[in-house]
Nucleic acid binder design. Structure first.
Lengths: 225, 225
DNA sequence: ATATTGTAGATTGGATCCGATTATGCAAAC
DNA sequence: GTTTGCATAATCGGATCCAATCTACAATAT
């Protein structure tokens, strides 16, 4: 038997296929709201944008559809998915159930580095003036608190909910000029984590999501179309 | 405007593409455990099975991967995904969080028809002797209780968890000869629904999932490789 | 004018083909 | 006997081509 190797050959993270690149790019464009709801995504157009044939484009579309970001109809193509207020409300209801549970599990495992990282995202969110970056920083902050839970499946579910509503969150962050009061809620959650109070962090997270949900839907009803 | 047609031309529910058919068939084969964990799925082989080219096969694979049922590696192909005990435990933890919530929301909305349907699935599960059908009837029973919640997103999440662990549930249902005691738990849950006691139904569901999880992992550790 | 029909272009689904990468088998060297 | 090095086959990712379907608009009939 071969002797165990000392060197851990670095994991040259498998190069991405064209379909991977296209999926990532289109996912980004959709969740950032750079494409209108209901807008069709033409295979030819996208293929030309990436200088590839339509094959990898279609494979990326299959995945976008499985993720719920687009809906496709045979021989008609795919369009960017849109969510009703009821659907948005349901997704936030789901988040209000899952995210407090995850943070509660994460608090006892949180490293000082994670807490420091979270504090940095929290500060950066508070200081940021560019509307485009609010969405990212908000998501980064929350994810940095969840990561140490080491619950990959829960995290993937949270990611999916974020993908689905992110375009609306961004819109309302813009309309409310950054939801300044959210900063205080973020800091309160983070302080509960630092104090190693899992239940408190969970409760604050649940309230944070509930108020975000209400703010979001009410603003959408007012301003959105 | 054209006169309204009397005949309601039946909604010939958009014909499925080849990729759809292949996805459904492969998903079924995987979750039923008809294919070994880690077994490679060759594009050519599958294409020949369905008498199509490899294109729709690859599109189906993209979706199976997004669903978590297979893992793919560039230039190497896809293999049936396998879950560690930790991963299985986490998924059941997730279910123990989500499913009680859903049934609690569903109870006030449950129609008598749904309760009757659930009772039929429950009875059928109790009476069934063919191991192959236990998995289906178990899933049908639970879904029939959740459906009236009218929470499509929650339901899709539950479906995903079922897909991921179904092969293991089936295996243990077989090993335990149908988990006969599960029938009593099912009946208790159903009775709580009939009595319109949402909290009780939720608690019973949570316990049902917890015991199922423990039974499952312990049996897997004993018998499974 | 309105509704119907027909036809051409646009778009998608799928088949076939080709280059790139990986896996396999076998001979040579240690 | 084990390991190394190659040649070959198996397999995959992607490009190109063709068929099926949809869409838009003009022509026709009522």
């Amino acid at each position: 038997m071969a002797t165990a190797l000392k060197v851990k050959a670095f994991d040259l993270g498998k190069q991405a296929s064209s379909a991977d690149v296209i999926y990532d790019a289109m996912r980004d464009a959709i969740i950032r709201g750079e494409i209108e709801e209901g807008e069709p995504l033409r295979q030819d157009t996208i293929a030309q944008m990436f200088n590839v044939s339509r094959i990898p484009v279609r494979e990326a579309m299959q995945r976008l559809e499985a993720q719920g970001l687009v809906v496709s109809e045979r021989y008609k193509g795919v369009v960017v998915a849109s969510l009703s207020y009821d659907q948005i409300t349901e997704i936030f209801q789901f988040r209000a159930l899952v995210e407090p549970t995850v943070i509660e599990m994460a608090v006892p495992l949180m490293s000082d580095e994670s807490l420091e990282t979270a504090q940095q995202f929290c500060d950066a969110f508070a200081a940021e003036t560019d509307p485009i970056r609010w969405g990212d920083l908000n998501r980064d902050f929350h994810n940095s608190l969840y990561r140490d839970s080491d619950k990959a499946f829960f995290l993937s579910m949270i990611d999916k909910t974020n993908d689905l509503v992110e375009r609306y969150v961004r819109l309302v962050l813009y309309l409310t000029q950054g939801m300044r009061y959210a900063v205080q809620e973020h800091q309160a959650i983070l302080d509960a984590c630092k104090a190693r109070k899992p239940k408190l962090a969970a409760d604050l997270t649940r309230n944070h999501i509930d108020t975000a949900s209400k703010t979001l839907v009410s603003y959408l009803r007012e301003h959105h179309k």
